[in-house]
Amino acid sequence: MGMRLFRRCFVSYGVAGHLGKALSLILWLAVPAHAEDDAAPVTVLALGDSLTQGYGLPPEDGLVPQLRHWLDERGIAAGIVNGGVSGDTTAGGAARVGWSLTPEVDAMMVALGGNDLLRGIDPEVSRANLDTILEEAAARDVEVLLVGMSAPGNYGADYKAAFDAIYPDLADKHGTLLAPDFFAGLGEGDPAELQRYFQPDGIHPNAEGVVRIVEGLGPHLAALIEAAK
């Protein structure tokens, strides 16, 4: 599946799960052992769908563990909570962000919108949901990195323009950091060549693809952590 087709249907498959009240325990486990030192690391909530959750991969190869590895290699102290829920839309994220932002969370990476695209949801609905998420973060004084998605051209020029504008517009409105494209790390090469970075479903990145995606997202995450200190 080429990148355009992938961008059209990179759905987060699976039954939507719930983090539940165990999130506080997860947060505690996600923070490195040296978190009790005077210079405690920043705790980041990664709010997303199956791309964040690590669908189809061994736990250590998913996005969040690989982001932790990227930070560790650079000596950046931070805990990252995997708040990815397979199948989630922006509406799902807006519904759970309030209880997901526990007192331990200092910053949040928001990577949602792919399933909205798959379902052809009105971009204004997606915009409103993401706006709700960012407003909740602002109310909690939580720094945010908003990760953009791009609509495929076959949805029509008007739909694509409306959807693609959501992320930079909201980042400007709320003063958040912006990673323009979740898949930037994969590059813009021949779609046939890019297939080697995906699982057999042609939708979710494989371990090598995640590593490349992390190379693209890592600097943005590092900036978020610095802003949250």
Rank of each mutant, 00 (worst) to 15 (best):
residue 42 V to G: 00
residue 174 H to N: 13
residue 16 A to S: 15
residue 53 Q to S: 08
residue 111 A to M: 14
residue 89 T to Q: 04
residue 185 G to F: 04
residue 222 A to T: 11
residue 64 V to C: 00
residue 172 D to A: 15
residue 112 L to V: 07
residue 61 D to E: 15
residue 1 M to S: 14
residue 115 N to Q: 05
residue 217 L to I: 10
residue 184 A to Y: 05
residue 203 I to H: 01
residue 187 G to Y: 03
residue 146 L to T: 05
residue 146 L to K: 03
residue 191 P to W: 06
residue 164 D to N: 08
residue 37 D to Y: 03
residue 57 L to W: 02
residue 105 V to C: 05
residue 95 A to P: 00
residue 48 G to K: 03
residue 17 G to D: 12
residue 43 T to F: 10
residue 228 A to V: 04
residue 128 A to Y: 00
residue 83 G to W: 07
residue 13 Y to T: 09
residue 186 L to P: 06
residue 67 L to P: 00
residue 113 G to K: 09
residue 44 V to W: 04
residue 219 P to E: 12
residue 58 P to F: 09
residue 27 L to Q: 03
residue 68 R to H: 11
residue 53 Q to A: 08
residue 15 V to K: 12
residue 120 G to F: 09
residue 66 Q to R: 15
residue 219 P to Y: 09
residue 161 A to V: 12
residue 109 M to D: 05
residue 39 A to F: 08
residue 24 S to V: 14
residue 58 P to T: 09
residue 73 E to F: 07
residue 200 P to V: 04
residue 208 E to F: 00
residue 195 Q to E: 13
residue 162 A to E: 15
residue 194 L to G: 14
residue 93 G to T: 10
residue 124 E to S: 14
residue 158 D to K: 11
residue 125 V to G: 08
residue 204 H to L: 11
residue 24 S to Y: 08
residue 191 P to A: 06
residue 215 E to H: 12
residue 98 G to I: 04
residue 221 L to P: 00
residue 144 V to E: 02
residue 180 P to Q: 10
residue 72 D to L: 12
residue 33 A to G: 07
residue 54 G to V: 10
residue 36 E to R: 08
residue 49 D to F: 04
residue 195 Q to P: 01
residue 166 I to V: 14
residue 217 L to W: 00
residue 83 G to N: 03
residue 35 A to H: 14
residue 21 K to F: 03
residue 38 D to Q: 10
residue 106 D to H: 14
residue 202 G to D: 11
residue 80 I to N: 02
residue 159 Y to Q: 15
residue 70 W to Y: 14
residue 207 A to D: 04
residue 164 D to Y: 04
residue 2 G to H: 14
residue 216 G to H: 10
residue 78 A to Q: 01
residue 197 Y to T: 00
residue 99 W to M: 04
residue 159 Y to N: 12
residue 192 A to K: 10
residue 29 L to N: 01
residue 9 C to T: 08
residue 128 A to R: 04
residue 126 S to A: 15
